[in-house]
Each structure stands twice: as C-alpha cells, then as structure tokens.
Amino acid sequence: MTVANISVSETPLVLYTLRRADDALILGHRLSEWCGHAPMLEEDMALANMGLDLLGQARELYSYAAKVEGRDNDEDKFAYLRDVRQYRNLLLLEQPNGDFARTMVRQFFYATFADLYWRAMMRSSDLTLAAIAAKSEKESAYHVRHSSEWIVRLGDGTEESHRRTQSAIDELWAFTGEMFAVDDSERGLIDARIAVDPAALHPQWLKTVSSVVSEATLALPKSDWMQQGGRSGRHSEHLGHLLSELQSMQRTFPGATW
C-alpha cells in the first residue's frame, strides 16, 4: 500500500506561505543532520539551536498555510506527504551540508537574506505573517551573527580553511539569485502589501555579504548566472534523497499517528 501525495490548493497566499515553510524545514533538517557530528561540542549546540529555530518557523508557517487553505491539511501532511515536485523551497537550502565551511556559507547567505526579509515582513498587512516575521527576524539575526563570525575565522584562519571556504562560496553562489526572484503569484501579494519585494533587499544583502567576505579575505565570484527552479518544484537531485529520509515513516506506515 502506498500513500498518495496530498493535493494542495496553491492560492497565492498558500503558495507563498508554503515556500517560506519549506525553506525553514529543509534548512532546519539539513542542520539537524549535523547533530552528534560537529567539529566541537560547542558548535554542535549552536547548530542544533539554529535547526530548532528553523523547525519552529516551519511549523508556524505550515499551520498558517493549512488555515488559509481551509482543507484538512496540517503541518505534518505538508511536510510528510508532498513529493519533490510539490516542495517549494530555495535550491540553496537543499544543498548537502558538505564540510563545515559549506554549511556555514549556506547559512550565512540565507540568514543574511532572511534577516532582512523578515524585518521587512514585520510590516505585512497580514497580521499572522507579521507576527511570524517578528519572531523569525530575531532568530535570523543571531544566525547571521553566528555564521558571519565563522566565515571570518574560516576565511582568515589557515590555508586549508581559506581554500575550503572560498570553494564553498564558489559552489553556492549560483543559488543566491533565487532568493530575490518574484513570480506573478507573489507579485500580487506584494502589490497588496501582504508580501514584500525581495529584490528591494538585494543591495543591502550584497553589502553585508561583501563586507564579511572581504573581512574574511575571501572573494565573491564574478559570475552572475543564477540557478532557479525551487520555487516551482524544479529541484536539484539532492531534495529527493532528503525527502525519502524525512518522510520514510509516514510513507511506510500510512495513516498512523505518532
């Protein structure tokens, strides 16, 4: 017996909320993979804290998406019973952890964006989203602090750490453009002041990222080619494996309560 994927009525607001929820879940899941394996105990604690912040954000956003959708979906159905093509997260966040430099660069790129984004979203005309934004902004601000301190140490540490961190930046750079992209569905929400235009945040993001990267004696790639697709369910091959693990219990024991 198999469990069918749920169907989702992706009205603009549902789709918008699921995209942010998926971002938080997928990155939180990636961070949780580190648990028990970090470079030192102190960092194990920090990675788990960031993972828990993101899982918390995901749960609030999924619950809101379920409420807006008004069918019988809930946080677990959204998380466990949608397939790769139904997931809406950014490609950046599903990229494998790699080494510690790769994980920190991914965190730094995203958190710097998320912090600006949630801060702007605190003025959303949608009061639930504004409240979620207020909580998430504080969490993201700490993620920026923590990851940027590490970027500086890794970039300006040893030759090996410099090389690994530069390589992580080079590998992940092409996934950063997607954070600032907007499609028609989201454009309507921006016009209605429910959402904010991420493109407007790009200059500030680039300024922060550039300044940390240069303090770290690292460099941003010249290339401006950017990968996209996550927001419409065209993912990298990595997401399917992540989901097969994340969803294994729900897929093996259909309908059970845990």
């Binding site: 030192m40 105990l41 604690m45 920090a46 700490y142 140490r153």
Partner: peptide, 20 residues
Amino acid sequence: SLHATDATLALQAARDIYTR
C-alpha cells in the same frame, strides 16, 4: 564553563549552551 578560541565565540557558545 566552555571551550572557545576567542571571546566572541565564547560569548556565543555561552548563549547557545547556558541559556537554552
């Protein structure tokens, strides 16, 4: 107590370990 290579990381680790 905790271990950290410098004061900034020590402060962050203290936050992550002792104020959860």
